[in-house]
Design a protein around this nucleic acid. Structure first.
Length: 922
RNA sequence: GCCCUGGUGGUGUAAUUGGUAGACACGCAGGACUUAAAAUCCUGUGGCCAGCAAUGGCCGUGCGGGUUCAACUCCCGCCUGGGGCACCA
């Protein structure tokens, strides 16, 4: 009987489904383990072989932990709100809910094919009202909270109101615009005034934000829809437009988000990316007086942020962001035209272009800043390299120490002051902190690192500036002018945003007639009269809303009273292993961390970090195949024939290519016979294709559908092959060649149990030999270790080694083969189950216990020592494992080979590492 | 420009703390079984040199140095592939 993977896999998948083998209890006396994949966006293209890489890894780990006695939560669901479905709706008139549902069904079928152990009763979809009800609920938590800087945590906004009622604005240290007020004044404010002030504290708040507005398309565009200042579609001009937007006050959490990285078992690279994104820096804010046309302005200062207050005497000019509010005030009449033109230019540029720009541009305003110590006048410029959103939107430029400032000065012929003597060569800036200051008044002769502290002290003493911690991270924009997202549980009355009551949730997403944008850059919801009339917010939440907390919902997915029962979340706690790609390094992972911290602060959770360990799977790239058509002909040249010919390289479907050899017949039938009449020139009777590694994508014809491989080789082979490809964290191009090797391994395993000719079951009860036990326990040891450290590729090799050795020994002993099946079941669950049941086991193999290595089978009495002379291996000699140098030395020195290399000399010394090696040094 | 990663046979890769480089596979070559094929099995397979052969020698983990009895592994400098961030003051 051959290994019939198709019928085996179908049979057991049905059995597991019927018996609810993967159902997980939300409470248990067992220790818990929560293993999670980043849930997918169900795109219309379906899964390709890159997607399941992480899913297989997490599935293996989940099964492994379950066998080891853990209660394992391993769920799956869909990040189902998103732009593509809406775009599809606009183009085809199909409701996003319908297309999303179809896509999910397709995904589910593909996932099921691979035999994952998900508990599908816990499936969630972010677009289900029963789910987004709680997304809205969490939004209300954010809206109804503020970050208390004294207690360093989120607190209910009601507490802030009572603080204001008792002590006025002096009760808090959070910044807000407008003047300070007393408790009495607060009570006297109108409701609208109070709500206005509170809005400046809420963790979810409404503000003005700039968006990419395309007048011609009548819509807001994402950054990557804008190319060189025009829309990608149609090439229409794009302008920045101020729109009312919702934000999350994530900046209040910047410090905790950075600090708590320390608690996480994430790769250093990942932590570093988050740290860089948060971008904490320390420095000073300095106030400069402003002088226009010889008059010093009395009530206005130019506030700059600098990390290098020690270089204050090296300032040669100031640069403001073109949007800076002071620009209008300080521009002199003779500079007005130039400034206006420059501002207009900057306005036409997307933020992305502006940041990518390498050529220097800028414009003098005519205004001057006054140096706080020397009282010299410093020209004030504007330039797009200074961003309004960072720091104060203004910098003091020190060309001798900052490369960008240096280039700017050179470009506009601004004289450069040297404050670091010989450390500055006049050719390029030197950003050192290890130089001695000169030309720096009272700092002269001081070491820069010391001057830094000294300057801050003096600035604070004189009231010119103050120490300041700054973050690169900005508050997260939390609204989209789209339809297919969560509606905000907000009602507007007379320009004031009021939250809905919890009892009014969920606020259902209404049906719309047309998916076109609403008026004035509003979303499609603004086209619905009843919606507008009810005063509902017309924006919807962004894609990351639902994904910022979904890992909590899996714990308790059907709870109608709460987003997750506290007892249940206490039990499941953090995600123990979170598997996903690095592309979410800053977005999703940062927002999830923030939401978790907010829910923790408000007492809804007992932990403040969502993902304890993060495993990043590498990207599976596509390996594209090319054919070469001689230019202007219908002749296709095999790769080796191209040489110096003028050819057009054309991508062909990788599924028609075996390695590099094109299936010419399939090619001729491809794309409805587009190439049916092609003249194919072969080399050695074959057509050889060219190769290029690039991103896996449908449009490049380099995607491979897992379904096809499962059909051809079975899910078990597919699972093991994906793991065998290499380290899980490494990116690599997909190559189907090689899957045969894994398939052969499973067939070989099968033949340990069955005679494929006669179909006879061969297993026997006889007691295993020590060498058979050694093979088994060696495998147990290696595979346990490798699975625990996510080294799945080496674990697969270990299986191969074990099966090869047992085959050579002709081992058919149940006592050996049975534990081997349990060991294998996380990797190849179907074949393991089939053979397990053939051994007469009634139970599911997933309910077995993971075998434990008995090292007594592994002990060796002898060791074949490698013997080197001067570090070069010359021979191997066996010694007892207990042997010490004294007893080894004479044997080595009398050894023929070693004597030859000694050439009669006595060795200087002999290095002996017990159990490892011997080195004779001459 | 900055940050992160990687570079080992024809290919994917292995070598967990510095201790026999190339495990395990793919591919390739030769052979067995077969009328033939598939499947399966066996042998060989880093390069160069010597030898009929067993075998032996030299070189070899991107490049150049260094530390060490010993380096894929540690240190310094460079080259290069991939990914990310981007005038962040």
């Amino acid at each position: 009987m051959e290994y019939q993977f198709r019928s085996i896999e179908r049979k057991w998948q049905e059995y597991w489904q019927e018996t609810g083998a993967y159902r997980v209890a939300s409470t248990s006396s067992k220790p818990k383990c929560y293993v999670l994949d980043m849930f997918p966006y169900p795109s219309g293209a379906g899964l390709h072989v890159g997607h399941p890489l992480g899913y297989i890894a997490s599935d293996i780990y989940s099964r492994f932990k379950r066998l080891q006695g853990f209660n394992v939560l391993h769920p799956m669901g869909y990040d189902a709100f998103g732009l593509p479905a809406e775009q599809y709706a606009i183009e085809h008139g199909i409701h996003p809910a319908v297309s999303t549902d179809q896509n999910i069904q397709n995904f589910r079928q593909q996932l099921d094919n691979i035999g994952f152990c998900y508990d599908w009763e816990r499936e969630i979809r972010t677009c289900d009202a029963s789910y987004y009800k709680w997304t809205q609920w969490i939004f209300l938590q954010l809206f109804n909270s503020w970050y208390n800087r004294f207690t360093q945590k989120a607190e209910p906004i009601a507490g802030l109101v009572s603080l204001f009622e008792k002590e006025g604005s002096s009760a808090v240290s959070n910044p807000f615009t407008g003047s300070a007020f007393t408790a009495e004044e607060w009570k006297g404010f109108s409701e609208a005034q109070q709500m206005d002030i509170l809005m400046q504290f809420r963790l979810a708040y409404c503000g003005e934000g700039e968006v990419n507005w395309c007048e011609a398309l009548g819509t807001v565009l994402a950054n990557d829809e804008v190319v060189n200042g025009v829309s990608e579609r149609g090439g229409h001009p794009v302008e920045k437009k101020k729109l009312r937007q919702w934000y999350l006050r994530i900046t209040e959490y910047a410090d905790r988000l950075e600090r708590d990285l320390e608690k996480l078992d994430w790769s250093e690279a990942m932590k570093e990316m988050q740290t860089n994104w948060i971008g904490k820096s320390t420095g000073a804010e300095i106030d400069f007086a402003v002088s226009v046309n010889g008059n010093t302005l009395t009530d206005t200062f130019l506030k700059v942020y600098t990390t290098r207050p020690d270089t204050l005497f090296g300032v040669d000019f100031m640069v403001l962001a073109p949007e800076h509010t002071l620009v209008e005030q300080i521009t002199t009449p003779d500079q007005q035209l130039e400034v206006d033109a420059y501002i207009q230019y900057v306005k036409s540029r997307s933020e992305r272009d502006r940041m990518a720009e390498k050529t220097i541009s800028g414009c003098f305003t005519g205004g001057f800043a006054v140096h706080p110590f020397t009282k010299q006048l410093i020209p004030i410029w504007i330039s797009e390299y200074v961003l309004a959103g960072y720091g104060t939107g203004a910098i003091m430029a020190v060309p001798c120490g900052d490369e960008r400032d240096f280039k700017f000065a050179k470009h506009f012929n601004i004289p450069i002051t040297n404050i670091i003597g010989e450390a500055f060569n006049g050719q390029e800036a030197n950003p050192t902190k290890d130089a001695t200051l000169s030309n720096s008044d009272f700092l002269n002769g001081m070491f820069m690192r010391d001057a830094l502290e000294e300057m801050v002290r003096i600035l604070e003493e004189k009231g010119i500036g103050k120490r300041k911690v700054n973050y690169r991270m900005r508050d997260a924009a939390f609204s989209r002018q789209r339809y297919w997202g969560e509606p905000f549980p907000i009602v507007w009355k007379d320009g004031v945003a009021y939250p809905l009551n919890e009892s009014e949730l969920p606020l259902l997403l209404p049906q719309v007639e047309k998916y076109s944008p609403g008026p004035d850059g509003q979303g499609p919801l603004a086209n619905i009269e009843e919606w507008r009339n009810a005063g509902y917010e017309t924006n919807t939440m962004p894609g990351y809303a639902g994904s910022s907390w979904y890992f909590l919902r899996y714990m308790d997915p059907h709870n109608e009273q709460s987003f997750v029962d506290r007892k249940v979340s206490d039990y499941w706690n953090q995600v123990d292993v979170y598997v996903g790609g690095t592309e979410h390094a800053v977005g999703h992972l940062l927002y999830s961390r923030m939401w978790t911290k907010v829910l923790f602060d408000l007492g809804h959770l007992s932990f403040d970090e969502p993902f304890k360990k993060l495993l990043n799977q590498g990207m599976i790239q596509g390996s594209s195949r090319f054919v070469y058509r001689k230019r202007g002909t219908n002749q296709f040249l095999s790769f080796g024939l191209v040489k110096n010919e003028e050819v057009d390289a054309i991508r062909v479907d990788v599924n028609m290519v075996d390695g590099v050899e094109l299936d010419v017949e399939a090619f001729k039938k491809w794309r409805n016979g587009e190439y049916a009449h092609a003249e194919i020139l072969l080399e050695d009777g074959k057509y050889i294709c060219g190769i290029e590694v690039e991103k896996m994508s449908k449009s490049k014809f380099n995607t491979v559908n897992p379904n096809e491989l499962v059909e051809k080789y079975g899910a078990d082979t597919f699972r093991m092959y994906e793991m065998f490809l290499g380290p899980i964290e490494q990116s690599k191009p997909w190559d189907t060649k090689g899957i045969e090797g894994v398939h052969r391994f499973l067939k070989k395993l099968w033949r340990l149990f069955y005679d494929t000719e006669s179909g006879k079951f061969l297993c026997e009860d006889a007691a295993p030999t020590p060498s058979e036990m050694k093979v088994l326990h060696k495998a147990i040891q290696k595979i346990t270790q490798d699975t625990e450290r996510f080294s799945f590729n080496t674990a697969v090799s270990a299986f191969m080694v074990a099966v090869n050795e047992l085959t050579d020994m002709g081992c058919r002993k149940k006592e050996v083969l049975s534990p081997l099946l349990v060991l294998l079941s996380p990797y190849a669950p179907h074949i393991a189950q089939e053979l397990w049941s053939a051994l007469g086991q009634e139970s599911n193999v997933i309910d077995a216990s993971f075998p434990i290595c008995d090292t007594s089978w592994l002990t060796e009495s002898e060791k074949a020592y490698p013997v080197s002379v001067n570090g070069k291996l010359r021979t191997t000699i066996s010694f007892s494992i207990e042997a010490e140098l004294a007893e080894i030395e004479p044997v080595i020195l009398s050894n023929e080979v070693i004597q030859k290399w000694l050439e009669g000399k006595a060795p200087k010394k002999i290095i002996f590492v017990k159990g490892k090696m011997i080195n004779v040094v001459i």
